[in-house]
């Protein structure tokens, strides 16, 4: 396993934000980390790259084993050698990820000069090669341009190029296509999938959009309010979602032939961090299958037949008792 996260828990002050997360990703594999805003997915990314400590967060339990080494408790200096070099990070907003006053080439060069110790000339050649591999036309010209000369899609490619410049083993992409047009999103997503195959990378894709997951992920891990709701191979999860939240997330996307009015969404919103309950299923207030047990007892994640996990008292494929149903109302 390239990255193996076990029971990761994290708190800021007295508030537990992540609670027992487990997932893993191997080389050549794409893991989708899915959830709505407030589900803790971006915080998870920060925790994996050791940046959560800067926000005052402490990891209280669990392990993050990357290529055989546990990253929990790693010194900042050691983390710095890892970030950018072995773990690439693609941020959500390409507009603010680039320095407006530095040329594209210099920004990408920096990464390979710092982490690979390349000379100025070699770094530029490396940069041009990566840019053209990301199908940026006239890469040498683009390298001399400034960010404001490029479109949003081009900028996102440059951010990806920066993440790739030091030849990392793992890439974490936090909503890499949210700010982009659909046709550009399709280009970028297909390109990422291609990279994973060709360079044997591990990719963690953070998104709120199940259709992106369906498109390129091999495995998916659905988060809700800092906990894992369900995880497993993507085909099984989509063919037969077992957690009501997973099912609802998939049902949020309009598809051809859907009857008008059949798209309902998920009622309510994710609870604020300060309102996180401990001894309950945090999805219960929004769940049609919830009963008294869901509100008083936390469903612990159990390993499923497909090697994934499920944390639900009343999975979609289980019969709901009439009494429980009435209670839910």
């Amino acid at each position: 396993m390239l990255l193996d996260v076990r029971d990761l828990s994290l708190r800021i002050g007295t508030v537990g934000l992540l609670d027992g997360l487990s997932f893993s990703v191997d080389r050549g594999e794409v893991l989708g980390l899915v959830g709505e805003s407030g589900s803790g997915k971006s915080l998870t990314a920060l925790a994996l790259t050791g940046l959560a400590a800067r926000m005052g967060a402490t990891i209280t339990a669990g392990s993050v084993v990357f290529d055989g080494t546990d990253l929990v408790g790693l010194k900042e200096s050691a983390y710095r050698r890892l970030r950018g070099k072995r773990i690439g990070f693609i941020t959500q907003n390409p507009m603010s990820a680039l320095d407006a006053l530095v040329t594209i080439g210099d920004q990408v060069d920096q990464v390979s000069r710092l982490h690979l110790g390349l000379s100025k000339r070699a770094a530029r050649a490396h940069t041009v090669e990566i840019l053209s591999r990301l199908r940026i036309p006239e890469a040498e010209v683009v390298a001399r341009a400034y960010p404001h000369n490029l479109s949003g899609g081009m900028k996102q490619r440059v951010v990806i190029a920066m993440a790739l410049a030091a030849d990392p083993d793992l890439i974490i992409a936090d909503e890499p296509t949210t700010a982009l047009d659909v046709t550009v999103q399709a280009q970028i997503v297909m390109m990422l999938a291609d990279l994973v195959r060709k360079r044997d990378l591990g990719l963690i894709l953070i998104t709120h959009d199940m259709s992106v997951v369906a498109q390129i992920c091999d495995k998916v891990c659905v988060l809700y309010a800092g906990r894992v709701a369900e995880s497993g191979p993507v085909r099984q999860i989509f063919a037969a979602p077992r957690h009501p939240y997973t099912e609802a997330l998939i049902g949020c996307i309009p598809r051809d032939g859907m009857a008008p009015g059949s798209l309902r969404g998920i009622p309510g919103t994710v609870a604020a961090v300060s309102q996180y309950g401990a001894d309950c299923c945090r999805f219960a207030p929004r769940c049609g299958r919830a009963d008294a047990r869901c509100r008083t007892q936390q469903p612990l994640p159990v390993v499923t037949g497909t090697g994934g996990m499920l944390a639900c008292h009343h999975p979609v494929d289980s019969p709901v008792k009439e009494a429980a149903d009435a209670d839910a109302r």
Partner: peptide, 21 residues
């Protein structure tokens, strides 16, 4: 052709548009 469908079995149908506006 660029819209993703929430169904992993329909992946092959995606044909991204080339170039930029």
């Amino acid at each position: 052709g660029s819209s993703f469908v929430p169904d992993p079995t329909e992946r092959a149908q995606i044909v991204p548009l080339e170039g930029e506006i």
